[in-house]
Design a protein around this nucleic acid. Structure first.
Length: 144
DNA sequence: CATTTGATTCACT
DNA sequence: GTGAATCAAATGA
């Protein structure tokens, strides 16, 4: 990534975190300096260090004032939130950066993927609050 | 100011 | 299968 090489990644596994009602979202109880970016405009990255070693790469999707984001759990052959960021050398430098070419990280439109190639499952890694509504199928996995 | 949490991963038994 | 690692921020005293 440092030599100007352009790498294209297919997002194969994502997870949605939508709104103040969603307790799995870090912003469920209000805005804080840490997750403030999720309250900002969409199209920017929310990079969050979890467990002291793993960076979580998110993309803000909701409008200003509404905390919603999508967690990139898998890209290309790399599966696992912490591994994706490691492969892309993403850290807090990318936090709050807009998803555009000038930041070195951006999205391009892909061809439509048929629904039958997408599997929806409950989210992962949020067992600390075993509530039923957390099992909402907000995880999307693309099966080639 | 001290303690707890956390959207995980890796090593070891 | 179980538990440790380890940084930053939120919460509580």
């Amino acid at each position: 990534m440092s030599d100007g090489e352009i790498r294209r990644w297919k997002l194969t596994e994502v997870e949605a975190y939508d709104g103040p009602e969603d307790r799995a979202c870090h912003a469920w109880k209000g805005q804080t300096p840490r997750n403030a970016v999720m309250f900002g405009p969409p199209g920017v990255f929310y990079v969050y260090l979890c467990y002291g070693v793993h960076w979580m790469l998110n993309v803000v999707t909701g409008p200003v004032g509404f905390p919603a984001a999508v967690l990139i759990r898998g890209a290309g052959e790399v599966i696992g939130p912490g591994r994706v960021t490691k492969s892309l050398a993403i850290d807090r430098i990318q936090n709050q950066k807009p998803a555009q070419k000038s930041t070195g990280l951006w999205f391009e439109s892909a061809k439509e993927i048929p629904d039958h190639e997408i599997e929806t499952t409950p989210r992962i890694g949020i067992g600390y609050a075993s509530e039923p509504w957390l099992s909402a199928p907000y995880r999307y996995v693309w099966h080639r």
